[in-house]
Design a protein around this nucleic acid. Structure first.
Lengths: 189, 189, 189, 189
DNA sequence: CTCTAATCGAGACGGTACGTCGCGTCTTACG
DNA sequence: CGTAAGACGCGACGTACCGTCTCGATTAGAG
């Protein structure tokens, strides 16, 4: 999705500013309520220039979301891919990562960006989890992934928006247990 | 949301036509792509008249979605509220209900209305499940509901859009097992 | 060009306002310098509404120019069509007509509208003078008309912009003599 | 208008290319429809470079038109300035000159440049004809010039665009007769 | 024949106007 | 005289072109 870093510094600077502006605005406003002019304004970039870099605001959001998701996914994947003994650790790593950049993730998961994040999450997961088995499984891989991501996103969103007092450890515990429920790891023991 | 049935038949007829029009359009188009003029056109109602009945298209969707959700919920609630032995039956009833009006639910769950449905679902569930216990539970009631609804909606959407060949019974089985995973019913046995 | 008077008063009012605004602006500015937003602004009409009535400013100008030209042409045509004895009277009638609405014609003939007027003039003249003869003439009808209109417009424009002190009678005399030169009426005597 | 030939060859080359490009484009397109980027493109010159030489496209046109006009004027002036016996010869010389570079003049007189040519023509004529008399004349010098130029330009444009089959001699004859009509030379005999 | 100063290419950027689309209000003509 | 049709204001969208700017890379012409 994201083209490899352009050479021209002005371009890098401009795009960064646009992403930053959108990220800021997402703290307070749903995506559909945000106007491209606002983004441009906040990014201190001309309205026209916006379109020189992104076809629409969704594209900015995708750009914005995608690398965060990719980064997060490295922590998440063991939840699904690896043998059970690691799942707890992976959950914890994930929750700590979220917790470390709480503001950003609150914006991404509880604001208007949630849909995009969820979509990007699912796509990327399926991409990276191509070696996952649904072999003898009662749950096909695609819906399994969708559900796992859905649960993860919903839980994290709830944590960030309505259960902020809970510790990463608590959430990680819940997440592990929930995913285990789906993955039936417990059942395999 | 929905005002109690108006007396005037013309009003009832008009609103019904509008809802019907939107429902039709939702089969093929995402909500944001649908224009009020289209709805009015299809409902054979003047553009101006639309606004005499609904403030915007979201309101129609809410109206449309809500009573479907309410109806569905009567079948669903036992999944969460009642003792375990009934859960399988409730799941099956739910899936059959969906299956009976496949077109409508495909539109509602996989079209642009999905978000509204999900929201209405969660709201209604919490409303009706106020007597649910999260007492000794590791999972607070609100997130539990959110997750259960999320899983249900995701699974049904997947069924309707990408796994149409599966029978209501199969889906019901998966749903039961998934919710059990969350509710930990199986684990309690 | 101009559709027969629309029924709705709002439409009539709006179009009139737009034409009036353009006419005003043409007093001071060339057509290309005038922006549609200015016209709308001056007409006290929303920018969008402008396009509900005219596709561009040229269309307004055409509308504006055309009926003036048609009116003027009724006075002018005898200059070309009729026997000599009437030409002086026709010239005088023309110049008096111009003089009666000096501001308007100054705008039309010396502002940015001149080209449109000239074009409309030629078109309308050829339309209405279909029975003109170039039979035994050394000068083909189309170029004859073009030149006659050109001379007339140039002379009137000069009068209005740089020789305002001259009386309609004086200008009429010059015009008669000039056209006679082209039409070779003198030569026929 | 045109600065005397610059020393640097690159500059000369670039300007020449720009003028040539505009001239080419004028064959097919009106000036307002031509974009500076097109000119630069066709001239094989960077967009930026255009502005290093001309402030806008009108300036190029002026540059382009002006020296052609100056050249033509040397042939034309006798039409107005000199005693009658030379006028026929001057007309013929003018028409032959036009005929010799038919493509160029077609572009200049019938394309979007016509207005500029006309203006430059009038200006230059008045400049060079400062010693003309309107002494006992019924027609003031400025309007006389305007009309003479108008007639000449209109006639030549008509020739080039719609009467291409006529010979320079025929057009010269018409031109002579037309100008005589205005100048009343014939009448004075 | 270099060296130095200018021209030139490339293209990001701010800005202004355009023309379109959809919403929701409010006027008008018509039954 | 009420009501359906639709004109209107509003404001965002996305496009096109203008003219400015900075940065290197040539390239001419002077020493």
């Amino acid at each position: 999705m994201k083209t490899d870093a352009p050479i021209d510094r002005r371009i890098r600077r401009t795009r960064k500013a646009i992403r930053g502006a959108l990220q800021d605005l997402l703290h307070t406003t749903a995506l559909e309520q945000i106007t491209i002019r606002e983004i441009a304004e906040k990014a201190d970039v001309s309205y026209t220039t916006f379109f020189r870099h992104y076809p629409d605001k969704e594209a900015v959001l995708a750009d914005l979301a995608d690398d965060q998701v990719v980064r997060l996914l490295d922590l998440c994947l063991p939840l699904i891919n690896l043998p059970n003994e690691d799942s707890a650790a992976a959950c914890l790593a994930t929750c700590r990562h979220i917790s470390d950049d709480r503001m950003l993730w609150t914006a991404l998961l509880t604001g208007g960006a949630a849909g995009a994040i969820r979509a990007s999450f699912i796509t990327r997961t399926i991409e990276k989890a191509f070696d996952m088995r649904d072999a003898d499984d009662w749950l096909p891989i695609d819906i399994g992934t969708t559900l796992a991501v859905g649960i993860t996103v919903d839980l994290l969103a709830w944590w960030l928006s309505r259960a902020g007092h809970k510790s990463p450890e608590q959430i990680a515990g819940m997440l592990d247990r929930l995913l285990a429920g789906i993955m039936q790891r417990k059942a395999r023991r």
